[in-house]
Amino acid sequence: MLRLKSLATLSSFKITGLILIIIMVVVPPALRDPYLLHILTLGSIYAIFAMSWDILMYTNQLSLGHSFFFGLAAYSTALFNSSLRMHPILAIIAAVAITAIVGLGLSIPFFKLRGAYYALGMAGLAKIATLTVTAYSDITGGEEGIRGITPLTTDHVGNYYIALATMLASLIFLYYTAEHSRFSLIFRAVRDDEVAAKCLGIVVHKYRLLCLVLGSAFAGLGGAVYATYLTIVNPNAMAIIPTTALVVTMGMVGGVTTIIGPALGAYLIVFLDSFFRVAENIRLLAYALTATLILLLLPGGIIRYAIKAANYLIREVRS
């Protein structure tokens, strides 16, 4: 397990974070490059999604079907907006509420599942949901999906700021909950040994439920913002491949159970994906190889090395 505070003093950690936030707020809009803004907007949306996957890992819930929540919220937003003519902001709120409630409901069938069984159960759920939205084409548009979702704004900079602000708010909330709230200690105990935690009075399923509801709600937030940004949603948003595969890669490349790591992983993977688009024939291979190399060469994820590098730089600047 990686504990961020053990790698960086709090002050240098805060300084690095603040510098990064300032750069992200100021630099991309100043460059006025629509493609760069698009990549960063997608990166921010996927960062929310990756952090939502990571919060589940705090209580050992490896989800291989997390795209279910992302896609459910994306479709809910699309349907609320296109069929019920709901304002996109209200559609987003309603979609997030629905995914949170569904997450709560799923805690019942998933109550006793652990490890590979839990992971496969979630994967099965995502598969069933993907087949369902594909089959009911009169409501969901089938393979084509739903088009014409009202965007929150058509301005590139506006979209970028919306995604960035949502990502930062999610990051602060999830990071505080997972690392600094009174739940933090219990999450870490449950992750290390559920049975021992139970025998010290910890009602383990309560904390697993909390993580599942948070994970589904924030995946829903990512999915809902994704739908209003791209103004289209299709079954891929819910599918294990590519969407769950993408979020798991982001989490593992970034550094599991760190919240910030998966967010960084999301930006990196989105950048890599767009970078390799110049060679479309070998894009998937190059992308998969790079992700594999990162996993092999940087065990624990890029966050560990990013913090070490930041600490080194700050020490150099101070001296």
Binding site: R182, L185, A189, R191, D192, D193, V195, A196, L200, G201
Partner: peptide
């Protein structure tokens, strides 16, 4: 309360934190 034949500490928590889990529990 009980202890375990094969020890089951929360490996990534400090000694103090291991005990605090019991307080919370």
């Amino acid at each position: 309360a009980r202890s375990w034949q094969i020890v089951r500490p929360f490996r990534n928590l400090t000694v103090e934190e291991n005990i605090r889990v019991a307080f919370y529990g």
